[in-house]
Design a protein around this nucleic acid. Structure first.
Length: 562
RNA sequence: GACCAGUUAGCUCAGUUGGCAGAGCAUCUCCCUUUUAAGGAGAGGGUCCUGGGUUCGAGCCCCAGACUGGUCACCA
């Protein structure tokens, strides 16, 4: 690997430190007793502190220097004074170790006392310091002046690929992930306080159920069977309700083998909760209380800004049926209409439809095209067509509908919930219908029948309401991030391309040259069979790598292997 | 998958009609004991994404490709 000048310099410093008897990666613990934040909040002139962190700025002024030390909670200024550190005659700890051998990014431990500088900055006067870990690669550290940031590390690709560096230099990035964890904790606490039970269910599943999505496939060697990474955990949680739990929930990493964009990552996190003896009306009440609680826990307010929108998670939320929503935005009433009438209406609205689309799908298209985007504030859309919801109980008043709601925020689905279908015979028929739709070519229909799940239902599942929440999407709303990559530590990326040591051109030239060791330049050029530009780049590259030398003699130009 | 934009020093970015590759910060050498984007003097550092073409000459123009971002499409 080719090292940059700065990387080489740092490796040389590493050797010099070792030569001075300083271990750049010591093993023993460093007895930290303060953080940067504690120093600022409990500031006391003259107090002794022991702190540790990364050097993020160094200001050498001759016999004294200032530096910024960054720890997990922020930054604090530290003051290195030659005669405070080196009380005797030997000034090498300051002159050589500190001034010459430390770099930005190094971890140091500091013992010192607190004081305030002439310009009023709370500062640690260093009495002694110790190198805790040397950084061999320079961090992309931005500069700040008057609240403006210069040279910010902003390239999304670099930031995602090297999240570790992103987190070090961009404090607002760290904040997003702190909030993400706060959201999970708040939700978990809310469920636990309600008496529900956190569980774990299989990630490797013989039948990928509970949603319609393309799964990742893998293989179990001992059993010699295909297994699928879960696309949802719904059917397993319901089995646990059959087993007698009143309420179960799981934060589930799901995997879907589909496209990636700013709202989709192949692995993402959903929360699913199932509560027995409840229906979807109860779940709506529960959902809005939950989200208000979470927003408060994460941001300290129920209000959140998302792009140009101000949203408020304060309960209660507006509720509207899908029928009324479509009526409101299109003037068309889907009630008691035939499939053909709805298809004609959709065509009239300039929505692309085709003959394979059933009634449910058509209604969903109309809603998605004309209504969905209008719901900025949290809004429950209720009573979805039966065809689209194979796991959801039929509506108590209208057999064409289901007892289902989705929560829309800023035109995007955040939660999805049902009164769960617990009639095993109905469920079997729905699965069989899905199978037919799939065979007809509907790629959204489920093509597996989970007979074990049906067996569980046959033992009897109490009336149950269940809800799924897209955690990544929710945290995007709560932290005002437009892309899922910003709320995942390590979003999926295309593998980095390995740089080849020699280009094809260089290899071609080398191949010809190897046989003779020394050749006339024009002969070599023609034998290599390269274009003018290819030759030019290749021979220059080889020279740069130090592999060949061009020599000018009276007989002409010669290329020689070095 | 379609369209648009981008790819130049460790970082952030300039780069004129096609004519020796630039700045700030960072790095290295020197001065500087309360600074704060510290300051002052000097130096080094480049596969201009890759490949091909046009040209006396390409970072720049043309063609093909790679990667990334954005918008749209797709995704309950």
């Amino acid at each position: 690997m080719q090292l940059s000048e700065q990387e080489l310099v740092r490796r040389q410093k590493l050797e010099k430190l070792r030569a001075l008897g300083i271990n750049p990666y010591p093993a023993d613990l460093f007895p930290v007793n303060h953080t940067s934040k504690q120093i600022k909040s409990d500031f006391e002139e003259g107090k002794q502190v022991i702190i540790a962190g990364r050097l993020m700025a160094i200001n050498i002024q001759g016999k004294a220097s200032f530096a910024q030390l960054q720890d997990s909670e922020g930054r604090i200024q530290v003051y290195f004074n030659r005669d405070e550190i080196c009380t005797g005659e030997d000034k090498s700890l300051y002159n050589d170790v500190f001034k010459k051998l430390l770099d930005l990014g190094d971890f140091v431990g500091i013992e010192g006392t607190l004081f305030t500088t002439q310009v009023g900055e709370k500062t640690v006067m260093v009495k002694d310091f110790k190198l805790l870990s040397k950084a061999l690669k320079p961090l992309p550290i931005p500069k700040q002046k008057d609240g403006k940031t210069y040279d910010a590390f902003t390239d999304p690709e670099m930031r995602y690929r090297q999240r570790y560096a992103d987190l070090v230099v961009n404090p607002h990035v760290k904040e997003v992930f702190v909030k993400r964890t706060k959201l999970f904790n708040a939700m978990r606490q809310f469920f636990n306080d309600a008496g529900y039970f956190e569980v774990e269910t299989p990630v490797l599943q013989p039948i990928p159920g509970g949603a319609a999505a393309r799964p990742f496939t893998t293989h179990h060697n001992s059993l010699d069977i295909p297994l699928y990474m879960r696309i949802a955990n719904e059917l397993y949680l319901k089995r646990l309700i059959v087993g007698g739990f009143d309420g179960v929930y799981e934060f589930s990493k799901n995997f879907r083998n589909e496209g990636m964009d700013r709202t989709h990552n192949p692995e993402f996190t959903a929360m699913e909760i199932y509560v027995s003896y409840k229906d979807y009306n109860w779940m709506m009440d529960f959902c809005e209380k939950l989200l208000e609680h979470c927003a408060l826990a994460v941001n300290g307010t129920s209000e959140a800004t998302f792009g140009e929108h101000k949203i408020n998670f304060k309960a209660p939320y507006k509720r509207i049926t899908m029928r009324d929503s479509i009526l409101e935005f299109t003037g068309f009433d889907i009630y008691n209409k035939s499939e053909d009438e709805i298809r004609a209406a959709a065509k009239g609205m300039h929505i692309e439809v085709d003959e394979t689309m059933g009634k449910g799908k058509l209604i969903d298209e109309i809603f998605g095209e004309k209504c969905e985007g209008n719901y900025i504030q949290p809004t429950f859309i209720t009573d979805y067509p039966k065809e689209m919801s194979p796991l959801c109980k039929e509506h108590r008043e209208n057999p064409e509908l289901t007892e289902r709601f989705e929560l829309m925020v800023c035109g995007k689905e955040v939660a999805n919930a049902y009164s769960e279908l617990n009639d095993p015979i109905d469920q079997r028929e729905r699965f069989e219908h899905q199978l037919k739709l799939a065979q007809k070519g509907d790629d959204e229909a489920t093509e597996f029948i989970d007979h074990d799940f049906l067996r569980a239902l046959e033992y009897g599942m109490p009336p149950t309401s269940g809800m799924g929440i897209g955690m990544d999407r929710l945290i995007m709303f709560l932290t005002n991030n437009q892309s899922i990559q910003e709320v995942l530590f390590f979003p999926q990326m295309r593998p980095e391309k390995k740089k080849v040591d020699l280009s094809d051109n260089e290899k071609a030239i080398l191949e010809v040259l190897k046989a003779e060791k020394r050749m006339d330049l024009t002969v070599l050029k023609s034998k290599s069979g390269l274009s003018n530009k290819g030759w030019d780049k290749g021979i220059k590259g080889l020279g740069k790598h130090g592999l060949t030398k061009v020599e000018k003699t009276d007989d002409g130009l010669f290329v020689e292997l070095v």
